[in-house]
Every structure is written in structure tokens, then in C-alpha cells.
Simulated scan of single mutants.
Amino acid sequence: MDYGFRSRNGLNFFQIDSDNKVLNVAASGTYTIGKPPTAPVTITRAVITYPTPITTVDAPHVFLNPNNQGMYHSLVQMGAAGAWTGFYFDLHLMAPFNGSDCSGRWLVATFRSTSTPSEYDLRLRNANNEQIFVGADNLLVMTGFPINEGWTLDSRGGQVSGIYWSGCQMQWTGSYDDYFLASTLLGGKIYNGNTTLATPCGFHAGVRSTLNGYVGALVSSEGGTAKNGRTTFAARPMRPL
């Protein structure tokens, strides 16, 4: 490494440097979607606006964590490079999500340090004198390794409005404290051999042993066979938000 910090204790290893960057929480909050007790109708889209724009060139990483259940799709980042202003995503309107409260918590993280150092603190900079870490940063702790092609078919599929939805799932952490990386998992549609369709993902009520999802098809012969192959991982903030 050229610029950074490395420590070793027995078999444990810790490293933060200009090459091995860490994700820092840049903003967080809650979202309302579905049918909360106070909502007269189902809210089909959650729109999040950051308190201040995020000025990184690359789009921030968006993480979601439903309070209980929630199945979402079509996440879109708002703004542009150097001025990311927020994001929005839609509710999967298959039962039971279209009649349930699917609200939860969100956070966004970047590979840039934005915290103000405390009076006594550790600060690291790269060759361009950019701050890459301070002890005041709220880092994301990965609690589940990145997985792709980890999906297996389950029995939760069904037909809704002419679309044949195949249900799929992957192993998860079991904890309600863990967020899933949504900006890669929900960031677009897939081509299933017939057309492009949304691939909603999230959690069923009371279930955190698996992350679940659906893939749609317009013909019955394709229904029940397609699997989501996108990558995601579980993470939680190092400090309370």
C-alpha cells in the first residue's frame, strides 16, 4: 500500500488504505411504501431526497431494510455524477405486498470519507490529499458475503394479470439489523427470452433466513423457471444511525 494504515493481531487483519477503500454511511433515513395503517390507499413508490447532494462521481450504494416485509423493484438514482440528489423505487404489487405495510429504513454509502475528525482522531489521506478515512466515519460492516447465482427456486410463484411469476430465494443472515444492497439488485430489468420484466426482491413477513424475489414471464412455459442472478450482500452500520 502507498497511503494507509495496517494492523495485525494474531490471525486478525485490518487494513484501510488508498487501494482498499471502505464504505462510509453518507446519509440515512426511513421510507414509507405499501399500505401503512394511516394510509388510505397503497403507496406504490417511495421517493428519497438526500438532505444535501452527494458529490461523488460514482453513484452511491443504496441499501434497504424493510421493518418486516417488502418486495421492491426498479430502483433509480436521481441526479448525476457529482450531484446525486436521491433515489426512488417501486412496490411489487403482488399479494400480500399490495395490501401490507412495506415501509422500512434506507442508507447510502460511498467510498469517500466525509466526516469531521474529532479532537483526537486518526485521519488518512491519499496521494491527492483527499481524506479517505477518519475515526469518526460510520463504516458499513459486511455481515454476508457477496453472492451471485445464489438463488434457488421456491414455491411462492404465481400468476398475476397475465404474468407468470417464479419465486426464488437465497440464504440470508437471520437478522433484522442487516440491510441488503439494493442499487445493484433492483437497478433494472432482465431479458427472460420473451421480454424485459422487473425482478422484485425483498423479504416476506417474519422471514430473515432468506432473501426472496420474483422473476416474471409472459408465457406459462417460462413461468417458474427463471432465476435472478444479480449480486447483493448484507451489511449494517458500525454505529447506530
Rank of each mutant, 00 (worst) to 15 (best):
P66F: 03
T184S: 12
N65A: 14
Q159N: 15
N98V: 12
Y191C: 02
G4I: 03
S74Y: 14
L181Y: 14
G86Y: 09
L23R: 14
D101C: 04
G162S: 14
C201H: 02
T42P: 04
N126H: 11
T52Y: 09
S175W: 10
P40A: 09
T184F: 10
R8T: 11
A81L: 02
P240W: 05
P117N: 05
D58M: 13
P237Q: 03
Q171N: 13
V62P: 01
A127R: 14
I54V: 06
G162I: 05
N65G: 04
A80Q: 15
N138Y: 11
G70C: 06
T85L: 07
Y176F: 13
G187A: 04
T85I: 10
T44F: 08
P237S: 04
V219A: 12
T85Y: 03
G229M: 10
R230T: 02
N20T: 10
G82L: 04
C201R: 04
P40D: 08
H92I: 03
G158L: 05
V22A: 10
G206Q: 01
N98Y: 06
P40S: 13
D2W: 12
A27N: 09
I43P: 01
A109P: 00
P117G: 03
A83N: 15
E130Q: 15
I132P: 02
D2P: 04
R105M: 08
D154M: 05
T32I: 09
G82I: 08
Y164F: 14
S113M: 09
K189G: 07
R125L: 11
G162C: 07
D2R: 14
D121H: 07
T210P: 00
T232Q: 00
T184A: 14
R45Q: 15
N129K: 13
N9Q: 13
A83Q: 13
N192G: 15
K227P: 00
N68L: 10
I132L: 07
Q131L: 13
F5H: 15
S175I: 12
T173V: 04
G135N: 11
L241N: 14
T38G: 07
A109H: 01
N128A: 11
V22I: 07
V108G: 00
T44P: 01
F97I: 03
G158T: 04
F233H: 10
G135V: 01
T30W: 05
I54S: 01
G223D: 01
D90Q: 08
P117F: 02
T114K: 12
G206Y: 06
G86L: 11
P51F: 03
R8G: 08
M238V: 08
I147M: 15
H204L: 09
S175D: 15
T143V: 13
M170T: 14
P60V: 00
A26T: 03
G187K: 02
D101T: 03
C102R: 03
D137M: 10
A234I: 00
A81Q: 11
T143N: 07
R8H: 06
P66M: 06
R156V: 10
P37E: 09
M238E: 12
E130S: 11
P66C: 05
D58W: 12
I43F: 06
I16H: 00
I54Q: 00
F133I: 04
W151N: 11
I54P: 00
V215K: 01
N12K: 12
L23Q: 15
